[in-house]
Write a protein that binds this DNA or RNA. Structure first.
Lengths: 233, 233
DNA sequence: TGACATTTTAAGTAGCTACATATTACCGTT
DNA sequence: AACGGTAATATGTAGCTACTTAAAATGTCA
């Protein structure tokens, strides 16, 4: 007799999750095969498959063909971050969004930018500096490089009107996105731009994107003092 | 005739993804129902369902019963972060991990801690301060509060030997985890502990966890200067 | 014993049916 | 026109079968 058909794959997932956390299976241990679990819980293998897929997504177990399923040997806290288009972020707070293009210049990418893309030979890129405003006050400073080869259309976009941030997110899909977060002290220039004091601690978000191995853009987003980045869920 | 059975649901996903990014469907637009797409692409509805589920997971579309599927009105960059147990993080870099308990004290949680848990009435908690070391050099400073009611066993753990970080991750599942990232300037105490200079910009990671609505722990992880947090994929 | 080919295994994918569930859409009544 | 109940509908879930694929395990031969 089936356990029930009300209980979803989530029930199976939580059941397994519970068994792992109760100590029945420790880090690195191998779990029974899907079919056996299905048998034991009186459900279809496909239901176990879905449950396991989810446990794998959150990093609790590792699955390999033929290798079976085992508890992740190094448990991690996995979190999801949503980074919206800056305009939406500002408007969601009820503030008026503003935008200033500071600089736009085509030039050969410096070593540090090439490094972010894991490139060695020089590439021509469009450098863009811009300031995002919230209610006319500085909100975020953006230092961006766009690969001309990959995104030639960027030349025809009027970046005084639409921010590169928004145009790229809306028009250029990416297949890979690397993010890094770190803290820096505001230097003279940043403090002027952002209305901060020299030496203020600022959160910096660096993002690089590729499409099928070809570099699209890399951007340093420098936030104002006190800025906090939160997880979604 | 079926298109093929080699092409997985990922093909369907990418097909739809492409249609969205080509401008055929803009932010907020409604997509055809799964059944129609299945028909058009000559595949089963379940295949479209899986593809759509994935697009929904990465935040590209929104799905609602009866409401259908529509392109997410505010496109986001969704990223996944893996935060490992600090010991593993250090060891993975090839360094020797060390750990020092600085303080352990049971007391009533202050207002700021209650706020992190969205609580109003006072609760007794265990306050733990500890320092993680990498090759005998300071690596991370941890300022933690553990809810005694939810995790009474914490009293019996010898925190001079095993870090609360590791014990909790291994023994206490959570159903909710909030993270926040921001930058601060090192004050006198932090600079002493971490071997930094006063005023150095430090990345701070704050994490709070709950199990079924009951608070487990909240921790401020203060990193050393130059620390970078990277996305996994 | 070691290198290489073959078999076996367990997860991954696709397709189908049937039913559940959450909304929207509609329609009738007041 | 406002309200409320009902029907219609698109997605969500469960179960089953069949087949694919990666990789571990085994066997074979030099």
């Amino acid at each position: 007799m089936k356990i029930t058909n009300r209980l979803s794959w989530k029930y199976v997932r939580d059941e397994i999750h519970h068994e792992i956390l109760s100590g029945r299976y420790g880090p690195g241990d191998r779990l029974p095969r899907d079919a056996d679990i299905a048998n034991q819980l009186n459900c279809a293998r496909s239901t176990v498959q879905r449950a396991m897929q989810d446990l794998s997504d959150i990093g609790l177990v590792e699955r390999r063909r033929k290798g079976g399923t085992r508890v992740h040997p190094e448990p991690v806290t996995r979190a999801t971050l949503d980074i919206p288009i800056t305009r939406h972020e500002v408007e969601k707070k009820g503030a008026r969004y503003g935008y200033q293009l500071i600089r736009q210049e085509e030039m050969s990418a410096p070593r540090t930018v090439l490094a972010a893309f894991e490139l060695t030979s020089p590439v021509s890129m469009l450098r863009i500096e811009a300031l995002h405003l919230s209610d006319n006050r500085p909100y975020m400073l953006e230092d961006r490089w766009v690969c001309i080869n990959t995104v030639p259309e960027i030349r025809d976009v009027d970046l005084k009107i639409q921010s590169a941030n928004e145009w790229l997110v809306l028009n250029r899909p990416y297949s890979r996105c690397d993010l890094r977060f770190y803290a820096i002290s505001a230097d003279q220039k940043m403090s002027e731009m952002l209305g901060a004091k020299i030496g203020d601690a600022l959160l910096l978000i660096e993002r690089s994107t590729w499409i099928d191995g070809a570099p699209i853009t890399t951007v340093k987003t420098i936030t104002t003092p006190g800025y906090q980045l939160l997880t979604s869920s």
